[in-house]
Simulated assay, not measured.
Amino acid sequence: MSRYREIKYRTVTSFQRRIGNPILKRLPNQTLLETTGRKSGLPRKTPVGGRRIGNAFWLVSEYGEKSQYVRNIQAHPQVRVRIKGRWHAGTAHPMPQDDARARLKTLPRLNSAAVRAVGTNLLTVRVDLTN
């Protein structure tokens, strides 16, 4: 990873971890992804942007396999997604073969713009919802 990308990654993730995510998690209509911590085994909630299409929820990770929630998914693919205040169980699948930039065009505009602006290694994730 280039020095610029590494500095960008550290700056953005530090802001998200300390300021952005704690605020967003408290908003009642914020979409959340709940994974199981790969080391701790504890539930981890991450604000995400995405869209439900049929029985699947689609999102794009800014940092691909470097994102903590993607690493948690790789260890434990069973997740929950809170959409419009309601929790849905599902199984998450990283989709490296999907065109993440094209996928962003089908997802909410504001979040997609932010992901494009700060992301350095985009990765599509599909959650197959069971309820």
Rank of each mutant, 00 (worst) to 15 (best):
S2V: 02
K8C: 06
Y9E: 03
Y9M: 11
Y9W: 14
R10Q: 15
T11V: 15
T11H: 09
V12S: 01
T13H: 05
S14E: 09
S14F: 15
Q16P: 05
R18M: 14
G20W: 05
G20Q: 07
N21M: 06
P22W: 03
P22A: 02
I23Q: 01
L24W: 07
L24K: 08
P28M: 08
N29L: 15
N29A: 10
Q30N: 07
T31Y: 02
T36I: 06
G37H: 04
K39G: 00
G41A: 07
P43G: 02
P43S: 04
P43T: 06
P43E: 03
R44G: 13
T46W: 09
P47V: 02
V48M: 11
V48S: 03
V48G: 13
G49F: 03
G50F: 05
I53H: 04
I53L: 11
G54F: 11
N55D: 13
N55V: 05
N55T: 01
V60W: 02
S61E: 02
S61P: 02
E62D: 01
E62C: 05
G64F: 12
Y69C: 04
R71S: 14
R71Y: 02
R71V: 08
R71D: 10
I73C: 04
Q74M: 11
Q74W: 01
A75L: 01
A75S: 12
H76T: 01
V79I: 15
V79G: 07
V79L: 04
V81E: 07
K84H: 11
K84S: 14
G85R: 04
W87M: 08
W87L: 10
H88Y: 12
G90N: 03
T91M: 03
T91V: 07
H93F: 15
H93S: 10
M95H: 10
M95V: 13
P96G: 04
D98K: 07
D98I: 08
D99W: 00
A100M: 01
L104P: 13
L104D: 12
K105V: 00
L107V: 12
L107G: 09
L107M: 07
R109T: 09
L110N: 04
L110Q: 11
N111Q: 02
S112C: 06
A114L: 15
R116T: 14
T120S: 13
N121C: 13
L123I: 03
L123A: 12
T124Y: 05
T130A: 09
N131Y: 00
